[in-house]
């Protein structure tokens, strides 16, 4: 198929940036979206032009590195997948595709479609961990009984890959779905309860400091999240935070 691409080009963090039109032909419907961009870049390379910078790593939906706002939605129009799992068969011959970077004050553009998502790392560092000694006498995990229901919920929360699509889709650029997944995966387990109070206070504080917006419960994040992280996690974080701040 032949496609018309409108891609955000921006030299560096300081450049104003603009949308640039590209035509691409002979795209196979079996290509992934990123492979289509690879073909475009090969073309640009051959012509001596600067290739389009975009993030990617595993290309199988597990690392959370790929991003892109495609035709008005993060990770494109499909549900429950990352951009690297999006296939060109989702588009029709002659389509125009808008490709933009994730937009948020806390995710500044580095170049073209690449944004700096290290704000997520700093939120993690503020409390997204448990402190255990690795001195050799660590307790066997199987010795701690955990309800199946809670184990499942904690596991669901832990499947968040930190891609940032929740922020990108939210009209307030709120990071609540990500932070709530990280809070929940520990809050649901006895190992995580020990530091639960400081964790939720510190992670939310960091989230606010990084300049993410406030949640208005529109639910865009839940729809766009490639891992199906549920809004129930946000409600759980709201409960955790409420009780933590009353302590």
């Amino acid at each position: 198929m032949n496609l018309k691409l409108k891609i955000w080009r921006q030299k560096d963090a300081k450049d104003a940036g603009r949308m640039v039109d590209y035509n691409i032909s002979d795209v196979s419907p079996d290509m992934s979206f990123l492979e289509m961009l690879d073909v475009l870049n090969e073309d640009l390379n051959n012509k001596g032009e600067d290739p389009v910078a975009f993030d990617h790593d595993c290309r199988e939906g597990i690392c959370g590195m790929c991003s892109l706002h495609i035709n008005g939605e993060p990770h494109g129009p499909d549900r429950g997948i990352t951009t690297c799992q999006l296939h060109m068969r989702k588009f029709k011959d002659g389509d125009t595709i808008y490709i933009e970077p994730f937009r948020a004050k806390a995710f500044p553009v580095i170049k073209d479609l690449v944004v700096n998502r290290s704000a997520f790392d700093r939120i993690q560092q503020a409390g997204g961990f448990i402190s255990v000694n690795t001195s050799g006498n660590t307790q066997d995990a199987n010795a701690i009984p955990i309800q199946k229901h809670n184990a499942d919920l904690a596991f669901d929360a832990a499947t968040c890959i930190g891609c940032g699509a929740c922020v990108a889709s939210c009209k307030n650029a709120s990071a609540m779905l990500f932070v709530s997944a990280k809070v929940s995966q520990f809050a649901l387990l006895p190992q995580g309860r020990i530091e639960a109070t400081e964790r939720v206070l510190n992670m939310v504080k960091k989230m606010d400091e990084e300049g993410f917006g406030n949640c208005t419960n529109t639910g865009a994040c839940e729809v766009e999240c490639p891992k199906g992280i549920s809004l129930e996690n946000i409600a759980r974080m709201n409960r955790e935070y409420l009780f933590a701040s009353l302590k």
């Binding site: 706002h69 948020a104 806390a106 300049g211």
Partner: peptide, 20 residues
């Protein structure tokens, strides 16, 4: 505050795909 959290918006946005 929410407006400030996204100083530059999208050229193409499709919010009705994921919100009411």
């Amino acid at each position: 505050q929410n407006r400030k959290a996204r100083p530059k918006g999208y050229v193409k946005n499709n919010p009705s795909a994921n919100t009411i």
